[in-house]
Amino acid sequence: MIKRNIKVLVVEDSLSTRSMIRSIIEDMGEEYNVFEAQNGFEALKILPTENFKLIVTDINMPDINGLELINFLRTTPRYKNTPVIIVSTEKTEKDIQRGLALGAEAYITKPFKPEELQNTINRVLNR
């Protein structure tokens, strides 16, 4: 039996984008186990419950935004080294720059092709 041991947290407030990202990641192999959070609040609740190998987050979300989440991850010892991929729009270039400055590993802009996300994930996880 394959262990579903690559746990990924997807933080995104749009239901359809979220489920689309989930299925793209699940297509990468059975070892991927995707968890969903629809905003920063939920992400903060789920984070301590699992050992995530990767976090994929949107930036523009109400209340706690992606940047604030990244800052939290980078300043908390437990999540300090958990890679983060930003999924955002090319419009928010300034936001993406800030996200990378805060310590996100990579970004990808919407709309994207499934392979783009998969390649980015492979790149981030294999290094």
Partner: peptide
């Protein structure tokens, strides 16, 4: 159960002005 407490606080803060951002921290 931070989410409920934070939400209540947020609602109260919003009656005083504009809440610009909510930054979580572990430091």
């Amino acid at each position: 159960d931070f989410d409920n407490e934070l939400r209540t606080l947020t609602e109260r803060i919003k009656t005083m002005g504009e809440l610009i951002s909510t930054l979580p921290t572990s430091e």
